[in-house]
Amino acid sequence: DITQNKDEDSLAERRVLLMGMPRSGKTSILAVIFDNMQPYDTLSMLPTVQRGTYRMSMGITVYDFPGIDDYSETQYNNLSPSVYEGEHASLVYVIDSQGDIQTSLSTMYSIIRMAQSVNPDIPINIFLNKVDGLSEELRQDIQQDVQNRVMKTMTYESLNSTFVQFFLTTIFDESIKEALSRVVRRLVPKYNSLETILNSFCSKSSLDKAFLFDISTKVFLATDSSPTDSLMYMFACHTLEAIQDIVAICAGYTAMGEEEAGLQKTVVGMDGSFKIYVYQVNSYSVLLCLNTMLIARQDSLIEYNGSKIAKAIRQILR
């Protein structure tokens, strides 16, 4: 899905801008999420010299910028400030948490200054990447430390820190997709309606959690407003992968064409009273619901409601 493009004016309206120092992991992150690359295979990744474009559903596009060594005039002369404009732009700054964090942060402030000069409310998402191999304690320490430093500096420099968020990420697990999900939700059209519908579905059918997934990246586009447990999200991703692998053997039976007729429905039974329901919403998204404390008679009710909710979401997205 990657295309090279030099023309700044043609950036998509709903966009995520991925920036950071060279080798912080930007291209690897996108290759793992969008091209299904195995994390180990990213070790031989070459430096990015030209901006890369990755398209997701709902018109959301992620841009991979070449690494910035230090924010000098020469390096950023050709980057028009208009890339930061608009209410559907979001900035992701990737930091190698096992590298030189201080240098990376000073470059980041230069970018934030420029971005906020054209768009004061642009969300700023700081990915502390490559936390694999670090203990849980060390991860928390790094996040605390960076968070304190960033907030202090931004206040001192009178930068707007209202829309700053921090994430601990690694390409070796689902944390990177979860982080991108949280970035993307602010760009999803009609997010509030989607959340409302998922909330009511969860409470009516006593579900623990419902996600609307983008099928190809497994980034979630929306979820109900209950807290998202990383373990549950990871498990949901693995469930989708298993379904995709298994259903591949039925490829010969499905006639291509009319989108809605081919929509798929899956029920995965786990130990005891735990079930996962997956309803395909349209060609690019599925609704996945988890019910860990299922009461026997709810089963058919959820199946019935689920199909109706999937249809409602399909109509909202149309």
């Binding site: 259903v247 039925c250 499905t254 006639a255 429905k265």
Partner: peptide, 20 residues
């Protein structure tokens, strides 16, 4: 599945053209 301390029981996948 062991990460969430549960065990897989069954799969049921359906669309217009097949049931698995």
């Amino acid at each position: 599945c062991t990460a969430i301390q549960s065990a897989l029981q069954s799969f049921e996948i359906r669309n217009r053209d097949f049931s698995l």
